[in-house]
């Protein structure tokens, strides 16, 4: 048992090491690091209050005073983009957390007990997967009223089946392994087996899957903000900022360009890292 955990840890470390040797995934990690720093330090870094309006100075083009210009209410776009990092990061982390919290138990129970339980739970995931994620999230967000918390709930509700499926297949594999059968034979309780043997094995593949999906979550949240089912004004959420700014294209391009670049950069960060992980996991895909 301990040997297996150690083995698992070594494997994870090796995976991390191999991932980091790749310059592209290193770049991805750097971008994510930057995102976290910016989110944490936004109040220190931002030259202005992101909500402070300055009507006399609205729609000012980028300059040394306002690096990214000002928006339709004279708010500093640079400061808003920085604060937006907090929101995107929060959405991404919370969504990942909630969808795995739902997906884990469903997948593990399904895979461990099989039979009726499995059938029932898998039919439920089928139902959720019979739908494109954004459309489902739209419907849920609309039913819940648009707030940031509800965006998280909507995307999580639309996204958990992926993790349930993954957790299920990993559980089924582990269940067949010798040490689990041994534990069952010596009469270990089911909850003990699930917690001590199955769960640790399920965690790392799911976490990897989550990190691969992080970019997608941010894009979905931005999409919801863009069509008006997401964050509320005056929140500096990137999707909402693009949506507000698109009415000022082409004259005041900076309103929607900078938040668009910010989303692209952050998602690129997650994608680069995810790509690196995938490379290590699936050597066929490797470049060299």
């Amino acid at each position: 048992m301990a040997a297996r955990l150690r083995q698992e840890r070594v494997r994870t470390l090796r995976l991390a090491w191999r991932t980091l040797r790749n310059p592209l995934s290193l770049a991805g990690l750097a971008i994510i690091g930057l995102l976290i720093c910016v989110a944490a330090l936004a109040p220190l870094l931002a030259p202005y209050d992101p909500l402070r309006t300055d009507i006399a100075n609205r729609l000012a083009p980028p300059s040394s005073h306002h690096l990214f210009g000002t928006d339709q209410l004279g708010r500093d776009v640079f400061s808003r983009v920085l604060y937006g990092a907090r929101i995107s990061l929060r959405i991404a982390i919370l969504t990942a957390l909630i969808s795995t919290v739902i997906g884990f138990p469903v997948g593990i129970f399904s895979g461990y007990f099989r039979g009726r339980v499995d059938d029932l739970l898998m039919r439920v995931t089928d139902m959720f997967m019979a739908f494109p994620r954004l459309v489902l999230a739209m419907a849920i967000a609309a039913a819940l009223r648009p707030t940031l918390e509800n965006v998280v709930i909507a995307i999580a509700l639309a996204g958990w089946p992926t993790y349930a499926r993954l957790a299920r297949s990993v559980t089924m594999a582990i269940r067949e392994e010798v040490y689990v059968e041994a534990a069952q034979a010596v009469g270990a309780s089911t909850s003990r087996i699930l917690l001590r043997h199955i769960l640790p094995g399920v965690v790392s593949p799911v976490i990897i899957q989550v990190s691969l999906d992080m970019g997608g979550i941010i894009l979905t949240a931005a999409g919801l903000g863009f069509i008006g089912f997401g964050a509320q004004p005056p929140t500096p959420e990137w999707g909402l900022m693009i949506s507000e700014g698109r009415n000022y294209i082409p004259g005041q391009w900076w309103l929607s360009t900078f938040p668009g670049l910010a989303i692209s950069l952050v998602v690129l960060g997650f994608n680069l890292l995810g790509d690196g992980i995938r490379d290590v996991l699936d050597p066929r895909l490797r470049g060299r």
Binding site: L24, G215, I242, G260, I263, S264, D275
Partner: peptide
């Protein structure tokens, strides 16, 4: 190969609605 990979990753990272506008 690297260029294609990098460019396609960038493409994958841009929100469709933003890409459409641009």
């Amino acid at each position: 190969d690297h260029l294609v990979r990098f460019v396609s990753l960038i493409g994958l990272s841009m929100p469709v609605f933003w890409l459409g506008l641009i």
